[in-house]
Structures are given as structure tokens and as C-alpha cells.
């Protein structure tokens, strides 16, 4: 299974994603330059985290207009799998590949911390190694991580089981206090309608070894690598 990791100017999570695929999944991986107009031959494309274009204007806004995003849009339309992590999630929302938007955190401060998320859906290509209700410990690091969508967008997310992860406390309860940034319905990660595009603010690629504080991210990565039939 061949992975591609998109490189935008300024995106700094590209190495983490690349290393996680190499070290943990032991799968082939290549960088995809932001000016690329074709992304064929990949089994999954990772849009990594970390301040593409310096987060200037709005996080993800500039990157969403890159040539590679047009190519990825075509790739996703054909059923290709795409996961956006952190800034990658913001880019996918800005590009319209996922519904909603990421807004400034409710306390108006950057937040870097290990948090808990509850797995809401384990039928997806991104989560089938998890169980529903399982609590994962993953790091977040963002200033604009507060998920927002309007009521029309929210309904299908709920009815079609497209909410992937929600912020919860250590025991798995989805509570107000466990919401680190004011996200609607504690949403930490979602899927598109077809289930082949995922976005999440927590960083599974940074939680791949107990030495780093958690290896729970491996479940997400392995779900992708061993796709559902």
C-alpha cells in the first residue's frame, strides 16, 4: 500500500506523517509537492498538519487553492482515500472536501496537549481497528481547532454516522469540560458522505510509540493500511 504525503510551503507535520508511515506501518511513502497536478498511484494521501503558508489569512485557506488540491479532489471523487490531520483537516474543509469549518479555539489561545477522544464509528477505512466507544489518547496542537458546521450540515453528519471522533474525558464520557476548544458536539474528526475522506484535529501520527506518551495513533494508521474489504 503506497502512501503520499503532501508538502505545502510551511507545512511542518509532513516529516512526522512520513516517518510514521515508514517506521510504524513499514509501507512505501512519497512526498507530493504542492504544485503536482496528478496524484495517481497512491492508495492513501495524507494532508499533514502544521501551518501551510504560515496559517496566514486563515489556516488552510491558501493551501486549498493549490494545484495539488484540485488533483486530490479528482482522486477523492474516484474513491481515493484522503486523510487530513490538523491543518490538513482545515485544508479539506476550506477546499469543500469536508463539510464545516475550523474556528478559533473558544479560549482564544493555542493549545497543545494530550487529550482523549471517543471513537464513534468503526466501520470506516480510518477506524476499523478500533471499537466503538474506545478512548484514544492523542495530542492536539492548534489555535483554530474548534469545529463548526451549520444545522443542515450537522444533521447528515449525525444520521450517516460520519462523526469519527469526539472529545471525551478519560473514562470516555463526552462532556463539556472535555471539549478543549469549543467544537460543535465535541467533534474531533469527521468523514465525508462517501466515507473515503477523513479529517481530524488530533494527531495520530504523533502518537505512535509509548515512549512519546501514547501509541493509540497506530490504530488509526493500521486501519488505513489494512483496508476494509
Amino acid at each position: 500500500m503506497k502512501f503520499g504525503v503532501v508538502q505545502f510551503p510551511g507545512s511542518n507535520g509532513d516529516q512526522d506523517a512520513y516517518n510514521a508511515v515508514c517506521d510504524v506501518l513499514k509501507q512505501p511513502v512519497e512526498y507530493i509537492w504542492h504544485k503536482s497536478t496528478a496524484v495517481d498511484g497512491f492508495d492513501c494521501i495524507i494532508i499533514p498538519g502544521g501551518a501551510s503558508y504560515g496559517d496566514y489569512l486563515r489556516p488552510g485557506a491558501v493551501a486549498s487553492l493549490s494545484p495539488v488540491i484540485d488533483a486530490i479532489r479528482g482522486y477523492a471523487d474516484q474513491g481515493g482515500r484522503v486523510i487530513g490531520i490538523g491543518n490538513g483537516f482545515q485544508i479539506l474543509c476550506e477546499a469543500g472536501l469536508l463539510p464545516g469549518a475550523l474556528m478559533t479555539n473558544s479560549n482564544v489561545r493555542f493549545k497543545c496537549s494530550y487529550i482523549s477522544v471517543r471513537v464513534e464509528n468503526n466501520f470506516s477505512d480510518f477506524s476499523h481497528k478500533c471499537t466503538v466507544g474506545q478512548t484514544l489518547s492523542l495530542p492536539i496542537e492548534d489555535y483554530q481547532g474548534s469545529y463548526y458546521c451549520n444545522a443542515d450540515e450537522l444533521k447528515p453528519l449525525e444520521s450517516e454516522n460520519s462523526i469519527l471522533l469526539r472529545y471525551c474525558d478519560k473514562s470516555g464520557k463526552v462532556t463539556y469540560d472535555a471539549n478543549p476548544n469549543g467544537s460543535a458536539l465535541n467533534i474531533a474528526g469527521i468523514l465525508n458522505e462517501a466515507g473515503n475522506v477523513a479529517g481530524m484535529m488530533p494527531h495520530p501520527e504523533r502518537a505512535v510509540d509509548d515512549i512519546l506518551g501514547s501509541a493509540d495513533g497506530v490504530l488509526i494508521l493500521k486501519s488505513i493500511a489494512q483496508r476494509l474489504d
Partner: peptide
């Protein structure tokens, strides 16, 4: 203070802020 700093970037931080020293692999 340290929650406002990304301390997990690059995936090498093995003792996070708050202890006596930061440790990196």
C-alpha cells in the same frame, strides 16, 4: 504557558514539559 507551545512537533519529545528536564529521542 507550555500548552500554548507545540511541544510534540517532530515526534521526538519523550518527556513532556512539566518535569525536571525535557527529554528528546
Amino acid at each position: 504557558v507550555y500548552e500554548q507551545f507545540d511541544h510534540t512537533a517532530l515526534g521526538n519529545t519523550v518527556v513532556l514539559p512539566g518535569s525536571d528536564a525535557a527529554v528528546l529521542r
